[in-house]
């Protein structure tokens, strides 16, 4: 087994919600006990429908939102409960690429200043010339030209802005990049360009990435390993080949079935999901998926499923496979 760059143990992120002035505080369990390892050099895809907690997981790992409980170990260092001041120097090891390339760049700063910002924060270079050279290098690396440095974000297209966002994330020379739906705000034609850029950078810089997306084909294209989330929990985890080739969890099967095949003559048997995702305020008991599951059994309503190892790299959280162990 390769080195783990990031270990997440039983991570919980709850958002407090109060109904009315005096109402009692309830918690939206956005992430409810996620355990994950990210190996060095891999691309881990996280998929799931809207509201399953995949973005919250990404932000929690970046410590952009407070962690309710659990552990996050980055390069062997526990950061979940670390205070902001101690964490600050370690922030450069982990960087984020944001979903909306229009909102994630300060409209009042030039591209040069945006990309130089992380270098200034961490005092990475002593002279201004070094910073300038580095900025141009990064711009070229993400496929932009030198003269773009003096322009403002509003002069760029969505794809170009996302490239600037990527350059900013690379500026601190991080070990781990968290890409939170980096291409879902872009046109399909631009999506592939940005994805190819990401693949190229990953290879060249030997980066590790967590790639959060709802688009299954995008995740299939870029990831080595895939994690499927449902309502704050991991339901299945496996290598890309195993998970896409042999989905075990009924939810994964339904997700893959809902994924269109680009051939109108193919008629396939589809397992369609009914209903919507239940409220994270009051998640169902037992297996959270049992309200929509076609293969629901009595035990599913009562007992939370344990992690079941199918093969070395493929595991599933489902009672269906309990007896096989």
């Amino acid at each position: 087994m390769s080195d783990d760059i990031l270990k997440i143990r039983d991570l919980k992120v709850y958002y407090p919600v109060r109904k009315g002035m005096m109402g009692k505080v309830q918690y939206v369990k956005a992430v409810d006990g996620v355990t994950l390892n990210v190996h060095k050099g891999e691309v881990l895809g996280i998929v799931g429908e809207s509201g399953c907690g995949k973005s919250t997981l990404g932000k929690a790992v970046c410590k952009l939102i407070p962690v309710t409980d659990g552990e996050i170990e980055l390069n062997g260092l526990e950061i979940a409960k670390m205070n902001e001041k101690d964490l600050r120097p370690h922030r450069k090891e982990i960087q984020m690429i944001f979903q909306d390339p229009y909102a994630s760049l300060n409209p009042r700063m030039t591209v040069h200043d945006i990309i130089a910002e992380p270098m200034e924060i961490h005092n990475m270079y002593s002279s201004k010339e070094e910073v300038d050279t580095k900025v141009v290098e990064l711009l070229n690396e993400v496929g932009l030209d030198d003269y773009h440095a003096q322009r403002y974000p509003h002069e760029f297209s969505g794809g170009q802005r996302q490239r600037i966002g990527i350059a900013r994330a690379l500026a601190t020379e991080p070990d781990l990049i968290i890409a939170d739906e980096p291409v879902s705000a872009l046109d399909v034609s631009i999506q592939s360009q940005v994805l190819n850029l990401l693949s190229k950078l990953l290879k060249e810089r030997n980066l590790t990435m967590i790639f959060i997306a709802h688009d299954l084909s995008v995740v299939e294209h870029i990831s080595n390993r895939v994690v499927v989330m449902y309502l704050g929990n991991v339901v299945e985890e496996g290598t890309r080949e195993e998970l896409y080739g042999q989905p075990m969890h009924p939810y994964t099967q339904a997700l893959l079935d809902a994924h269109p095949i680009p051939d109108p003559t193919v008629r396939k048997e589809r397992v369609l999901l009914e209903g919507t995702i239940p409220s994270a305020l009051n998640p169902p008991s037992g297996c959270k998926f049992h309200t929509r599951c076609k293969k629901c059994m009595a035990i599913c309503k009562e007992k939370e499923p344990e992690k079941i190892q199918i093969t070395e790299n493929h595991s599933v959280y489902c009672h269906l496979y309990a007896e096989k162990q």
């Binding site: 952009l64 984020m96 944001f98 994630s104 760049l105 924060i121 961490h122």
Partner: peptide, 14 residues
């Protein structure tokens, strides 16, 4: 609450 301020925070800005 804007994303670019979040981004700034994730960069480690004071």
């Amino acid at each position: 609450e804007s994303v670019y301020v979040q981004a700034e925070r994730s960069l480690g800005a004071t």
